[in-house]
Simulated scan of single mutants.
Amino acid sequence: MPPSTIPTLRQQRLGAELRKLREHAGLTSSAAAGLLGVKQAQISSIEAGRYAVSADRVRTFARAYSCPDQRLIDALASMTGGRMRGWWDDYRDNLPVGLIDLAELEHYATALRVGLVVHIPAALQTTDHARALFKEAVPSLQQYEIEHRVSHRVKRQGILYRETPPPYTAVIHEAALHMGYGGPATVRGQLQHLLDMSELNHVTVRIMSFGKGSFPGNGQSIDYLMGPVPQLDTVQLDAHHGCEFLDAQSQLEKYRHVLDRMEENALSPAASRDLIHRVGQDI
């Protein structure tokens, strides 16, 4: 298949996982090239995500690397092929690449877990709430940039409205319910929307109340995107410089544990809905 000049994060991840398999097998890229009958430069391009590979080629690589994990091999094979254009590609000229990569990862995720302190999760925001947030961006955004981001955020939310949507679990600190973005009317609308979404079978919303003495994760906003196998999970962290993506196994294990702790400290879904309702009534 031809080289990919602009590899997506998903393509880069496939290449990185193939590199891990090769290194686990104790092979240099030169030795792997000789074993597979290709040039070393092609191995390097594939591992960098610049060269698309077929599912059959991935299985050939896995056999050559003596990988015994059939579920992982099948999952990697499902990530192959030429670059498929998604709705998010329409925003490549207007938004940071991290937001494009995040939308693609969410599209393919089998389940999502999030933990936030002062924000409502993007997937559960109203357009008015999202617009108010983007107006607070530093440096300031032009109005057309704000509208691009609002439109992109709304389309990201489409994953929750599929015929078979992925399970979505959000742990939100009570502070986020009181932030007041956009004024009272916007806040009331946002809290009602949060209540409505929490009633969906595939959406779980749990609030960590002010009464709790600790907050696991030191208040960091976390998006945990689950892949078809745990090795292909991804963590996305918000940073002032943009999206930060993590996929090392030690990092994945750490953030799984952080989210587990957050859920343990949060109110039940029913108690969380009661709290959201009380906050809304006081506005």
Rank of each mutant, 00 (worst) to 15 (best):
G26Q: 07
P68L: 01
E136A: 15
F245E: 02
V229D: 00
Q42G: 07
A175W: 05
T8V: 00
H178R: 15
L102S: 01
Q12I: 10
D93N: 11
R131V: 03
H148K: 13
Q40S: 10
G189F: 06
R149K: 03
V154F: 12
T234V: 13
G81D: 04
H107F: 10
K212L: 11
A132D: 01
L275H: 02
N218K: 10
R85Y: 07
K39Q: 15
C243F: 10
A239T: 15
L9P: 03
I46Q: 03
Y181A: 13
S214C: 12
S78I: 02
G182H: 00
D101P: 02
P166D: 06
Q192T: 13
G211P: 08
V58K: 02
L27I: 02
L259P: 04
G82Q: 12
L112D: 08
E264N: 11
R63H: 13
G183L: 03
G280V: 11
L177K: 07
P3S: 07
S44M: 07
Q42A: 10
L195M: 06
L191S: 07
D74S: 01
Y144W: 14
Q281N: 10
G180V: 08
H152M: 13
T28G: 06
E106G: 00
L72R: 01
Y108M: 11
V118R: 13
W87M: 04
A176N: 06
M208P: 09
T110L: 07
E23K: 13
V53T: 09
G183I: 05
D90C: 04
S29T: 15
H193I: 02
H24I: 08
D282T: 15
R261A: 13
P68E: 09
R63G: 10
G242L: 05
G98Q: 07
V58G: 05
L225H: 00
R71N: 14
L252K: 00
A48W: 06
P96V: 12
P184K: 10
H202Q: 09
K20H: 12
A75K: 04
G183A: 04
L21C: 09
L252G: 00
Y144N: 14
Q236N: 15
G15F: 05
R273S: 14
M1V: 11
D101H: 11
A103E: 05
Q70E: 14
I172A: 05
E199Q: 14
H257W: 12
S66T: 13
M79N: 02
I43N: 00
T28C: 01
P2N: 11
F134H: 05
S78M: 08
L105K: 00
S221H: 12
N218W: 10
L14K: 04
D69E: 07
L237M: 05
T234L: 10
R131H: 06
I222Y: 03
F245A: 02
N94H: 15
L252I: 06
D238A: 10
H241M: 12
V205G: 05
T234W: 02
S4R: 12
A62D: 04
I120P: 02
V150N: 03
F210S: 10
Q190Y: 04
I46K: 03
G280Y: 07
I73C: 01
K254T: 13
